[in-house]
Design a protein around this nucleic acid. Sequence first.
DNA 1: AAACGCTGGTCAAAGGTCCA
DNA 2: CTGGACCTTTGACCAGCGTT
Lengths: 413, 413
Amino acid sequence: MKLDGTILFATDTEHFTNSTLRPRQTSPADATVSASVSSAPQADEGGTQCFICADRATGKHYGASSCDGCKGFFRRSIRNNHTYNCRFNRQCVVDKDKRNQCRYCRLRKCFKAGMRKEAVQNERDCIITPRAKGQTVRTLSISVLLQAEVSVQQFPVLPSPQSRDISSKKTACVGDVFESMKQQLLLLVEWAKHIPEFCSLQIDDRVTLLRTHSAEHLILGAARRSLPYNNVILLGNDFVIPLRGAELEVTRVALRIQEELVKPLRELDITDKEFACLRAIVFFAPADCPGLESPQVIQHLRLQAHIQLEESTCEQRGRFGELLLILPPLQSVAWQMVETLHLAQLLGEARMDSLLQEMLLGEGTNSKPCANDDLTQDNESKQRASSANFTSVVSNISASLPSDHPAAHTDWH
Amino acid sequence: MKLDGTILFATDTEHFTNSTLRPRQTSPADATVSASVSSAPQADEGGTQCFICADRATGKHYGASSCDGCKGFFRRSIRNNHTYNCRFNRQCVVDKDKRNQCRYCRLRKCFKAGMRKEAVQNERDCIITPRAKGQTVRTLSISVLLQAEVSVQQFPVLPSPQSRDISSKKTACVGDVFESMKQQLLLLVEWAKHIPEFCSLQIDDRVTLLRTHSAEHLILGAARRSLPYNNVILLGNDFVIPLRGAELEVTRVALRIQEELVKPLRELDITDKEFACLRAIVFFAPADCPGLESPQVIQHLRLQAHIQLEESTCEQRGRFGELLLILPPLQSVAWQMVETLHLAQLLGEARMDSLLQEMLLGEGTNSKPCANDDLTQDNESKQRASSANFTSVVSNISASLPSDHPAAHTDWH
DNA sequence: AAACGCTGGTCAAAGGTCCA
DNA sequence: CTGGACCTTTGACCAGCGTT
C-alpha cells in the first residue's frame, strides 16, 4: 500500500512533459506559448536574465535587470521599510528556487545588483533615468587592476629570486632609500599607464593624481613588501630599513609602517586582488586634490574600485571595512614621511633627485594647477611649455595611447 | 503496481469529470471544457466548497478548491514527505467531520480532487523576526550609538530654535571659535560617557582616545552642522565662519571642510544612524594611538561600529565604502587645523584655554602614557595625583558608573 | 502613432503563525 | 506533534506615462 501511494503520486505528475515552466495559466493562448517555449531547449537566453536570481528578467527595474518577483520584493521592502535578518551567514544562495528562503540575502543582492532605493517611491514625473544607458559601465575591471599590479611587480630592478633571508640584505643608506623611491615612483607611472581610464584623463589631472598620491604609493608598496618581516622595512631595491638602530627620524616612519600598516594587513592576510583594488582606491582619491578638472570622473573611478574591492572580499563580514580603514593611517604615515623629507631637505641633510622633489615635495611647479589656466591651450603645447621633467614623463603616456581610446568615450553621469 | 495506481487514478478522475470543473489546464481542449462546464448552472454552492471534505473552501489551493484544513494538510504531507497507511479498505469517507480519521484516504482524495504536489513550494523565510535566538552578544549596538548621539545634540548651549537663517548668525571671532571648540570637546566626553564599552576601558586608554580624536570630532561635528549651508561653517554656539572674507588660515581649513567633507556628505545624504556609526568609527581608531593598553579591545569596538554602519547603509551599492572614504580627508583636515592652531599659539596670535591646549595640541602631559606606570595605583589616586584638568574630567567618568558595569565583562574575541 | 521601457498597483494563491 | 483559523508575502499581469 505504501508503494501504491507513492506510485499514485508519481503518476499524477503526468504533465511533467510540458511543465518545464510553471503550469499556471488556464488560457489556451498561454498554454501554447508555454508549449512553444518549453520546446526550445535553452532555458536561459543570457541577455534577459535577472541579476538577482537568474530567473527570466522582465526588464530593468530600479536600476537592475530583474524579474517581476525581485522587482516586487524590492519595492515592498523599501516601501515598508523592512529590515530582515539572515538566519545563517549572510551568504545564502539566491536563485530562482531559493530566492524566497532568505529575504535578507535577497534584498542585499538586489542592492548589489544595482537596485537603488531612490528609484522606488512615487515619482510622478520621471526626470530621466540618471544612468540608464551605460548601467554596466564596467570600466576599471578587476582584471585591469590585477594586470597593472603584475606589470609593476614584474619590474624587479634587482634579480633577487625571492631571497627571503633578511640577513643577506643590506641596510639602506640615505642614497639607497632615495634610489628606491625614485624607482618606485617611475613604477607608479608605469602602473597608471596600464589603466586606460587614467590615460584618458586630462594631462593636468594625470599629473595631479600622480603627484598627490606618490607618497601613499611608496608607503603602501613598502608595507606590502614588508609583510613577511617583523623588524625591517624592505625596499624595492632589496635594501632594508631596520626598525631599530637606524636614524631616529627614519625609524619613526618605519615603525609606524610596521605597526599601523604591516600588522593589520598581515592579520587580514590581504590577497592580491584586494591589494590591487586598494592601490586604485588610494590613487583615485579626489578629495585631497584641489583644482582637478574632472573630479567626478575620478570619484567615479574610485567608486568602481571600491566596489571591486567589496566583491573581492567575498562577503567576509567586516573585511571590506577593515581594508578601507587602512587608508587613514596610510595617509597619515605618508604625510609624516613627506614632512621628514622636507625637513631633511631644508637642513641640507639629503640631496634629492629633482623627480623626487617634484613628486613628493611638490616643488618645481605650482602644486595647485592655476585656476585661470588657458583652456584653449592644448595638451601638446602645454607639454612643450613645461620644463618639469616629471610632467613630461606623464605626458608621454598620452603619446603611447591612441587619442581616441574607447575609454575616453565612457558616459559618466 | 504502477499500472494499478494509474488505473485507479484514471478511473477516479473520470468519475470526477462531470461533477466539477477540473482546473487542470495544460491543453486547450481542457480549457474549453472547463469553460463550458463553469458556465453550466451548478446547483449548490459548488464553487465555495472543499472538493476533499465538502467544508467551506477558502479558494483554490494546489490546484483544487479546498478548505484551509485540507490545504495545510496537503502542504505538510508533501513537505515532510509523509507516507500514510489506511487501516481499512482505502475507502474511508472523507468529510468535514471524519477527515482526520484516515490520513491516507484524505491525502488520496486531495490528489483525486486535483491537488498537485508540484504546487507545494520550498520552505520560505520566517515572517516573524527570528526571536532573540541566541542574540549574538552585541555590544556597541546601534541604539547605544544613537542614544549617545542624541545626548550630544541635546545640549544646545544656545537656545537657538533651529534658526536656519544664516544671515541672522554672527561671524565668529577667534574667541568664539575657541569657546565653541571647548564646548564641543566637553560634549565629546559626554558622548563617550554614554558608551558603556568606553567607560570600561582603562583610564589611560580613555584619555588617549579622547585626546587623539578630539580634532576629528570637532571637524566632523562642524561638517555635519554645516550640511545645510553652502558658504559658511556653522559652529556649535551658533556663530559662523564664512568661507570667504575671514582670515586666510582659518578660511583654508573651512574651505576644506566644505569641499572635502560637507559636499560628499551632502551628496550621500547621510542618515542619523550612519553618522552615529561614523563618529564611533573615527573615535575607536587604535592605529594612530601609540601606547594603548588594550588596542585589541578598541579595534574590536571599531569593527563592531563599522559592521553597524554596513548594516545601516542597507547594502546600497557602494554607499558603505563612500562613507568610510570620508575618513581620510577628515583626518587630514583635522591635522591641518591642529597645525594651524599650533602655529597661532606659537606666534602668540591666540590664547587658548588649557583644556584646548591639552586635548588638541597634546600639551600639558606626556602625549604617550608612561609605560612603566604603577599599575597598582588605582584610578582614584591617579585622579588625585593628576594636575591636568582634562584627565580629571575623564576620570570622573569612572566615578559616575558602577565599577562592575556589565559591559566590563564583555567577552572579546 | 505605435512600440517600448519602467514606474505603480492588484489579488489569487502561495507562505507562515500559533493556540487548542 | 498535528490541525486549521487567520494573517503575510509573492509574483504574474495590467495600467499609466514619458520616450523612442
